[in-house]
């Protein structure tokens, strides 16, 4: 009882541990808040910095791709799909498990891991 009381009083005097991303309190209207943030009226608290080698959203470079289809074979979530008609590898972000295996197998470096992890959006693609 005494140990926890001591720790709690110590914490009372310190700043909260919570990461205040993107704002301290929920705004009244989230859409308005995002619009204001875009115009620079309000400042967003930055998210936590991710370490190097973070596995985030995958970037696909169509020009480098040789269509070997290795990535579609190793992808555990079937997030990469070869579309015959357009001769293109299609990346389904909402299925992706961010394992980074496709990046490992890609012989030309057409696929790359980025640090982007804020992936919520209004549309599915």
């Amino acid at each position: 009882m005494i140990v926890i009381a001591k720790e709690l009083v110590k914490q009372l005097l310190k700043k909260p541990f919570t990461n205040l991303f993107p704002a301290k309190y929920a705004p009244k209207s989230i859409k308005q808040f995002l619009r204001d943030a875009k115009e620079g009226k309000v400042k967003l608290n930055p998210p936590v910095v991710v370490p190097p080698n973070f596995r985030g959203k995958i970037e696909y470079d169509e020009k480098k791709c040789i269509r070997c289809k290795l990535c579609t074979r190793v992808c555990p979530a079937k997030a990469l799909e070869y579309v015959e008609k357009e001769n293109i590898i299609k990346y389904h972000l909402f299925r992706c498990a961010f394992c980074g295996q496709c990046v490992d197998v890609c012989p030309t470096g057409a696929l790359k891991l980025t640090k982007e992890f804020l992936l919520a959006g209004y549309k599915k693609d």
Binding site: I4, E7, F17, P51, N53, F54, R55, A97, F98
Partner: peptide, 27 residues
Amino acid sequence: VLHYILKARERVLDIIEYITGNRITKG
């Protein structure tokens, strides 16, 4: 104590992220 312990747990999750590239699904 729940909050106290979860605060302490952040450190190991950061280490896991540092080693593997993600906090939970380590892959």
